[in-house]
Simulated assay, not measured.
Amino acid sequence: MNAPRILVTGGAGFIGSHYVRAVLADEYPAFAGAEVTILDKITYAGNPENLAGLPCELVRGDICDIELMRAIVPGHDVVINFAAESHVDRSIADAAEFMRTNVLGVQSLLQACLEAGTPRVVQVSTDEVYGSIETGSWAEDAPLAPRSPYAAAKAGGDLIARAYAVTHGLPVSITRCGNNYGPRQYPEKVIPLFISRLLSGRRVPLYGDGRNVRDWVHVEDHCRGVQLVAERGEPGEVYHIAGTAELSNRELATLLARACGRDDDAIEHVADRKGHDRRYSLDDSKLRALGFAPRVPFEEGLAATVKWYADRPDWRV
């Protein structure tokens, strides 16, 4: 079999660039020697330096541009869509760009894939589309009940992907993961933001009572899960990629404070976020049946992440 041609949208961002690095390092035998094209709008969260030195083509563009999609999608064997607006607070302040990219952009990309006859497509999504769960874990057939504009936009994109699979037979699968962490994450998300502030001697803001619970997955494990779905996922199906630690935000803040040489005085309670989901939890048995298991223990992954930012003060805000 010839080495595949892969199009990675959002490939200059945090998760996408990790995936590209893994592919080009031949960490995924099925994609060994792959030729990679990256499409990225290069917003504030997309950083070409994440791809420095990598043998890939970077196309600067927007997945909402259907003519651009029609120009670059043909000839690729696999298309993986990491492109998204993803920060909940920004979506609460102004939802328009989230709807544009996460809904209309997905439709534009999938239409181009349909017209090109792309053999394999993966839509990368989030556990936030389910809303909030007090106990237990969501299975892939749980109803979608998003509670933030970001989550609603991602749910819309997922439903479009499913519709293209059912209506048109497009071979697109959907992945949904927990909260990602690791190096190269733009410091607006909680872990790099807290590390940045703590290392700079500032306090960190903890929403509400701090008891909101999240499932944490290292970015390398997330990318391994996406790769498995790209290789073996069924069209129209959803696959969960869960992490290795379920923590309250208060527990996470305390761990980060200790890792950065601070104490609990560095944690400041602030007014809760609007519509703040209480807890996320994914049942990942479906993906595990395909051979997936997370490899990065949370304690090790968190320590390595703190060190990465500590060694790079230019990444702090």
Rank of each mutant, 00 (worst) to 15 (best):
R90A: 05
S91N: 09
S91W: 05
A93D: 05
A93C: 00
A95H: 13
A96Y: 12
F98D: 10
F98N: 03
M99N: 10
N102T: 06
V103W: 02
L104H: 08
L104V: 01
L104T: 10
L104N: 12
Q107T: 10
S108C: 04
S108W: 01
S108T: 02
L110E: 01
Q111M: 09
A112H: 04
C113I: 00
L114K: 01
L114P: 01
L114W: 08
A116C: 12
A116T: 09
G117D: 07
T118E: 10
R120V: 00
R120F: 03
V121R: 01
V122N: 07
V124E: 02
E128G: 04
E128K: 08
V129G: 11
V129W: 12
Y130V: 02
S132I: 08
I133A: 09
I133W: 03
E134C: 08
E134Q: 14
T135H: 13
E140L: 13
D141R: 11
A142L: 09
A142D: 12
P143T: 06
L144F: 15
L144R: 02
A145Y: 14
P146N: 07
P146Y: 10
P149K: 04
Y150C: 14
A152W: 07
A153M: 07
A153K: 04
A153R: 07
A153G: 06
K154R: 15
K154N: 10
G156F: 14
G156I: 15
G157T: 02
L159T: 15
L159R: 14
L159A: 15
A161Y: 04
A161L: 06
A161N: 00
R162N: 07
V166A: 14
H168S: 13
H168V: 03
G169R: 12
L170I: 03
L170F: 00
P171T: 01
I174C: 05
I174A: 01
T175F: 11
R176T: 07
R176V: 03
R176S: 06
C177L: 13
G178M: 05
N180L: 10
G182V: 09
R184H: 09
R184D: 01
R184Y: 00
P187Y: 04
E188T: 15
E188M: 11
K189V: 06
V190E: 00
P192R: 00
F194T: 00
I195P: 14
S196M: 06
L199Y: 04
L199F: 05
S200C: 08
S200P: 02
G201S: 12
R203D: 13
R203M: 11
L206C: 03
Y207M: 07
G208R: 02
G208S: 08
G208D: 10
G210K: 08
N212R: 05
N212K: 09
N212E: 12
V213N: 03
R214I: 06
R214L: 14
D215C: 13
D215W: 12
W216N: 03
V217F: 12
V219H: 06
V219F: 04
V219N: 03
E220Y: 11
D221R: 05
H222C: 12
C223K: 01
R224I: 08
V226E: 07
Q227K: 06
V229D: 01
A230Q: 01
A230P: 07
A230K: 04
A230G: 05
G233F: 05
G233P: 01
G233W: 02
